[in-house]
Design a binder for these strands. Structure first.
Lengths: 186, 186
DNA sequence: TTATATTGTTTCGAGTCGATACTAATTTAT
DNA sequence: ATAAATTAGTATCGACTCGAAACAATATAA
């Protein structure tokens, strides 16, 4: 049976292509937008070349190239990591943060025009469940919010929260960012 | 407000990236798979470089390049068009048709594993409505099935069906393919 | 019949992307 | 403590993407 005879796949293909083709705004490429968005949301354990590699599903070399392009444009800054001399802490520059206000993906809210609140929530919930199923099936990482992770703990002693996996204290801000190590509570 | 704070957009971005990164199978690129799928479904008025241009949302030059790459791989054949000496009729070769049995997009059915029939249909319906809203909002073409188009007519005189826009007789097969000229009945 | 529009190709330059090979820092095993 | 394995990241290569711009040929309209 042909892929395009399955309505869901047909929709998915079309949607993915639409996202891709609309993501050429402001002189940036689709991946570059993806990277900018990721960096705006990732916590300090995740905003590294390897975090991006896992998120984008690409090879290290490819990510390294894309980061160089963004660095040349002044949208991204590389800082040394406190603990590990190999690691690089990739951060959005002020210009990078400003660029995100022109994110072409924002236009995709327009598709919800005829939707009531309920339909909207249903679509989000189902899509979220679908994506979760997809990622667990192929062992992809979820990059969920730190505070919803199975390693997330309230800590009395060191800072407000604590990561049981990385053994690190977490600030209020940390807890709202997304993390490479995120695992579903189950 | 940041795009990634809107759950739907966040899901969409992730899904689109996932589709993109999984679409590197069998030595083909994502666009090349898109083109193969399109050609397998498009009717004779639509399987041209310009049809693809409209479908992919790219420029003519880009499409021309991609087609050349697919032609070199022997997956696609170019034929002259009967009526118009400028036009090119792009068709899947036998090898191209065979390639589609390895479509990496098929793996995306796996995300529906925990879904009941009802959830599945709801997701498809909402996604379809969303996509329609999106395309009409930005005047994108829908590439719907010929027989569901506002120009589609049953014809007593010439062949089983008739296209009121192109003034052409349509076979049973034609009527099930997708068309560039598709417009919603409304 | 002369504009004008449409269909498609070519060339250019920046960037994507996987593969491969490489360096340096860190961890693990001994 | 040190050798081996692992991990983080970079550099280079070749095929391809992609928009922009310039171009040719055919078709349509004034």
């Amino acid at each position: 049976m042909h892929v395009m005879d399955m309505p869901l796949l047909s929709l998915l293909e079309r949607l993915a292509r639409l996202v891709h083709s609309e993501s050429h705004a402001a002189g940036l490429k689709p991946v570059q937008w993806d990277i900018l968005r990721f960096l705006a949301q990732a916590n300090r354990f995740s905003r590294t070349p390897s975090g991006l590699t896992a998120y984008l599903g690409q090879t290290k070399g490819t990510v390294s190239q894309s980061l160089k392009a963004l660095e040349d444009k002044g949208l991204v800054e590389k800082h040394p990591q406190p603990g590990d001399k190999r690691g690089v802490d990739v951060r959005l520059s002020t210009a990078g943060r400003a660029m995100l206000t022109q994110d072409p993906l924002a236009a995709f809210m327009g598709g919800l025009d005829g939707f009531g609140l309920e339909d909207r929530q249903t679509l989000e919930a189902l899509l979220s469940r679908y994506l979760t199923g997809l990622l667990t099936a192929r062992q992809g990482r979820m990059f969920g919010e730190c505070r919803q992770c199975r390693f997330f703990q309230a800590s009395a002693s060191q800072g407000p929260y604590f990561c049981g996996l990385l053994k690190q204290a977490l600030s209020e801000e940390d807890s709202r960012d997304r993390c490479v190590e995120f695992e579903l509570i189950c």
